[in-house]
């Protein structure tokens, strides 16, 4: 049973939700948001898509294997912590760079952002793995 309304909405909502989740991730350091919330929102977007079409179609949209995504997120979080070690500071100390932004502004970018990105990826990976494996079970009665 496929609802044309749901499919259309899901198709339209998916990019918006992903962009919103990235927005949450990016602003998280200064405004409400962050990797955890962002990851959940992105996962919700994909799940909506999978409900409208099929888990298999949704897996195709994600492109990457979810286990790889989870592992990569973990690796990124842990890796962002090791940057400080090379700078002679304790593991997971924040290291910051100042980048030149548009119109003379500066953008501060630090390892905590990559840490948060890792959290974001892990949350997406785990949430989708659990929900997909359940949803695929439903497909084959």
């Amino acid at each position: 049973m496929r609802s044309i309304i749901l499919s259309t909405v899901a198709r339209a909502m998916l990019p918006i939700l992903i962009m919103f989740s990235l927005f949450l991730l990016w602003r998280g350091h200064n405004e409400p948001g962050g990797g955890f919330t962002g990851g959940l929102v992105a996962a919700a977007g994909v799940i909506l898509f999978s409900l409208a079409y099929s888990p298999r179609a949704a897996r195709r949209v994600v492109r990457v294997d979810l286990k790889t995504l989870t592992g990569f997120g973990l690796l990124m979080a842990a890796g962002s912590g090791t940057v400080a070690v090379f700078a002679g500071k304790p593991f997971l100390t924040g290291v910051w760079w100042k980048l030149a932004g548009p119109q003379g502004s500066t953008i501060e970018l630090g390892t905590p952002f990559f840490f948060d990105l890792g959290v974001y990826l892990v949350v997406i990976g785990v949430t989708l793995s659990i929900l997909f494996s359940k949803a695929e079970e439903e497909e084959r009665p």
């Binding site: 998280g28 350091h29 405004e31 962050g34 912590g81």
Partner: peptide, 16 residues
């Protein structure tokens, strides 16, 4: 370098 204390705690102070 962050104004959202909750997030700073999560990713920096309590990163481990």
């Amino acid at each position: 370098h962050g104004r959202n204390v909750v997030n700073v705690i999560l990713v920096d102070y309590r990163g481990l």
